[in-house]
Amino acid sequence: MKIEAIWQPENQQRIFRALMEAMARPGSVHCLGNWLDGTHGYRGVLASLLDIQSTLSDCHNLLEAGDWPLLQARPEVVEKADYLLCRGNAQPSGDPKVGTLSCPDQSATLLVQIEALGHGKQTLVLRGPGIKTSCTLQLEGFGAGWLELREQSLSFPLGIDIILVDQHSVTAIPRTSRLEVRS
């Protein structure tokens, strides 16, 4: 039986390790290409993160019907989902959950599919925990609406975490990072 690379435990562990690094060092770009076997980065990230206890809102219908039984996650509306899969050049809709003061971890993580990561016309400068001084991130296809949504949701320790992913690579913008948009 042929099982796609992203569903094999050893590849999921490697992708998860890359995600841990990305979360610990916000703005650092990590290549997942070796473990994706040609599929899009967001499928690899979801395969590593989700299980039967997770809920997912596929905001812009990026997943195929056959992906759901493999992911095992339950579909959920934006307001209640643990993970949101979104298209970066679309506008956000709905209010993702931001956690509670007693359980700030029960917030949503946005997985945003963008066109390019590590290069592109847009520039974000990140500061905060996990970054020595500042980190400059080049990217393409990340609409301003997502940053506005992040800003509106942020009331530390409450807020949302964002994972940006393009075809082959991933980076993270946790709620602890301070952002500056440069044109």
């Binding site: 039986m1 042929k2 099982i3 796609e4 569903w7 039984p69 493999l70 095992q72």
Partner: peptide, 9 residues
């Protein structure tokens, strides 16, 4: 034959 999982074994 092409045999692929519909859910993970």
């Amino acid at each position: 034959w092409q045999i692929t999982p519909k859910s993970l074994p």
